Simulated scan of single mutants.
Amino acid sequence: MSEEAKSTEMKRVLVFGGKTGWIGNLMCELMEGEEKGVEVFRANSRIQNREAVAAELDEIKPTHVFNAAGITGRPNIDWCETHKPETIRTNVIGTLNLADLCLDRNIHCTVYATGCIFAYDEKHPEGSGIGFSEEDTPNFDGSFYSQTKGYMEPMLKEYSNCLILRVRMPISDDLIHRSFVTKILKYERVVNIPNSMTILTEMLPASLAMAKKGLTGVYNFTNPGVISHNEVLDLYTKIIDPTYTYNNFTLEEQSKILAAARSNNELDTTKLLRDMPDGIEINEIKKAYELCFERMKINLEKEHGGPVPDCLPKEFRRI
Results as ranks from 00 to 15, higher is better:
residue 177 H to C: 15
residue 214 G to T: 04
residue 213 K to Q: 08
residue 149 K to C: 08
residue 138 P to C: 07
residue 138 P to I: 03
residue 209 A to P: 08
residue 177 H to E: 10
residue 216 T to K: 06
residue 187 Y to D: 07
residue 228 S to H: 02
residue 157 K to G: 09
residue 131 G to R: 05
residue 128 S to L: 02
residue 211 A to E: 09
residue 171 I to G: 13
residue 220 N to G: 02
residue 228 S to N: 03
residue 124 H to R: 10
residue 123 K to T: 09
residue 227 I to T: 04
residue 171 I to Q: 12
residue 181 V to R: 06
residue 133 S to F: 07
residue 202 E to H: 12
residue 196 S to M: 03
residue 148 T to L: 03
residue 214 G to K: 06
residue 207 S to M: 06
residue 176 I to Y: 15
residue 153 E to K: 03
residue 146 S to H: 08
residue 186 K to S: 13
residue 157 K to N: 08
residue 169 M to G: 11
residue 229 H to A: 13
residue 124 H to S: 05
residue 189 R to S: 14
residue 205 P to K: 12
residue 223 N to Q: 08
residue 160 S to N: 12
residue 191 V to H: 02
residue 198 T to I: 05
residue 222 T to W: 10
residue 150 G to N: 10
residue 223 N to C: 07
residue 149 K to E: 04
residue 226 V to R: 00
residue 216 T to V: 11
residue 218 V to M: 00
residue 148 T to V: 08
residue 162 C to T: 11
residue 202 E to A: 13
residue 226 V to I: 08
residue 181 V to K: 07
residue 219 Y to E: 00
residue 203 M to G: 10
residue 148 T to F: 02
residue 183 K to E: 04
residue 190 V to I: 14
residue 193 I to L: 01
residue 147 Q to C: 15
residue 223 N to F: 04
residue 146 S to P: 12
residue 159 Y to K: 11
residue 173 D to F: 14
residue 126 E to N: 09
